[in-house]
Simulated assay, not measured.
Amino acid sequence: MKRAIFPGTFDPFTIGHYSVVQRALTFMDEVIISIGINESKRTCFPTEKRVEMIRKLYADEPRVKVEAYDGLTVDFALQHEAQVIIRGIRTVRDFEYEETIADINRKLSGIETILLFTEPELTSVSSTIVRELLQFGKDVTPFLPEGMDINL
Rank of each mutant, 00 (worst) to 15 (best):
C44Q: 11
G147S: 12
E121N: 14
E98Y: 11
A82I: 13
K56Y: 03
F76V: 00
T43N: 08
E67Q: 14
T118D: 04
K2N: 06
I129F: 03
E61H: 02
L108D: 02
A68L: 01
E67A: 04
M1G: 09
P7A: 13
R131Q: 09
V51R: 05
S19A: 09
K65S: 00
F95V: 14
E39Y: 13
E146T: 15
M148H: 07
K49I: 10
L122Y: 10
D29V: 14
F143Q: 05
T91V: 05
N38A: 04
N38R: 11
T100F: 09
Y97T: 12
E81F: 11
M148P: 09
E99D: 05
G88Q: 08
E119L: 15
S127D: 04
L72E: 00
I37G: 12
I129V: 09
Q83D: 05
F136Q: 14
T113A: 07
P46S: 06
Q22E: 10
V66R: 05
P62E: 03
L122H: 12
D149P: 15
Y18F: 15
E48Q: 13
D70N: 11
P145L: 09
I86R: 01
I33F: 15
V140M: 05
T47E: 07
R63C: 00
A102I: 10
F6C: 03
D11N: 14
V92W: 06
E96A: 15
V21R: 13
Q79R: 11
E112G: 04
T43V: 13
H80L: 00
P120H: 09
T47A: 14
Y97L: 11
A68Y: 01
L122C: 03
D60H: 03
T128Y: 07
D11Q: 12
I150C: 14
A77G: 06
T14R: 04
R90G: 08
R87Y: 07
L115R: 14
E96T: 15
D11Y: 08
T123W: 06
A24P: 03
I37W: 02
I35S: 05
R63I: 00
N38M: 02
K138Y: 13
F76C: 04
F95T: 10
R93Q: 12
R3Y: 02
K107D: 02
T9Y: 02
F10I: 13
F10P: 07
D94N: 11
D70H: 13
R106C: 02
E61K: 04
N105I: 10
I111K: 13
G110L: 02
D103Q: 15
V20C: 06
Y18C: 12
R93Y: 03
